[in-house]
């Protein structure tokens, strides 16, 4: 189970935000329309949110619980703040879109990628088992400092990578046009999903 996966986190946050924007209650189909992820994936997100006590789910109707409202307001507030922050340089509509992205901290393309991944049946594997071709990064396990190193090198969930060579001590892959060598120990902790199989 990839409970901690970046996609799931984003989808969960999006569901909460949509709910609060729509006054706390909405039809499931509406959410499905809005966030464009696979049905099974959305179900998983909803089940988890329900388990966490953040929403109530009855047939086709989804409602925020009290603690859910609290959390969703938080997310919305964050969202509005970012929106305001970029309003100065972009149109209203664009600012809104940007804030959707930055609130999950990743680029537009990456978000699209992440959501696309959720429609795949296969849920990804460690980078080391992935011999060649292109893939999306879905999850990175690391301590905080290694994580920052990854991020500052452009290695981040949702980003597309292309494996170039496998060596006995590690892998060489291309990300954003740059070649990077990663040791086996680290590669094992990074999960990816095949890009072509979709």
């Amino acid at each position: 189970m990839k409970e901690d996966s970046e996609i799931l986190r984003i989808v969960k946050e999006d569901i909460l935000r949509i709910l609060i924007e729509k006054n706390g209650s909405v039809l499931k189909d509406y959410i499905a329309d809005e966030i464009k992820v696979s049905k099974s994936f959305m179900d998983k997100a909803i089940t988890q949110l329900e388990k966490e006590g953040l929403l109530e789910y009855d047939k086709n109707n989804i409602k925020l619980s009290n603690s859910g409202k609290f959390k969703a307001l938080d997310i919305l507030e964050k969202h509005l703040k970012i929106e305001q922050y970029f309003k100065g340089i972009k149109s209203q509509k664009q600012a809104h879109k940007i804030s959707h992205i930055i609130e999950h901290y990743i680029s537009e393309e990456v978000i699209d990628n992440l959501k696309k991944i959720s429609t795949f049946k296969n849920k990804g594997d460690s980078l080391i088992k992935f011999k060649n071709g292109e893939a999306f990064i879905t999850n990175m396990k690391s301590d905080d400092k290694l994580f920052e190193r990854y991020v500052s090198m452009g290695i981040i969930p949702g980003e597309k990578i292309k494996i170039i060579t496998e060596l006995p001590n590690g892998l060489i892959f291309k990300i954003k046009g740059k070649k990077i060598f990663i040791a086996r120990e680290y590669a094992e902790q990074i999960e990816v999903l095949n890009y072509e199989k979709s």
């Binding site: 090198m153 590690g170 060489i172 740059k178 070649k179 990077i180 990663i182 040791a183 086996r184 120990e185």
Partner: peptide, 9 residues
Amino acid sequence: TPEPLLLEL
């Protein structure tokens, strides 16, 4: 256990 390698080419 030495620190694993992570570098840009």
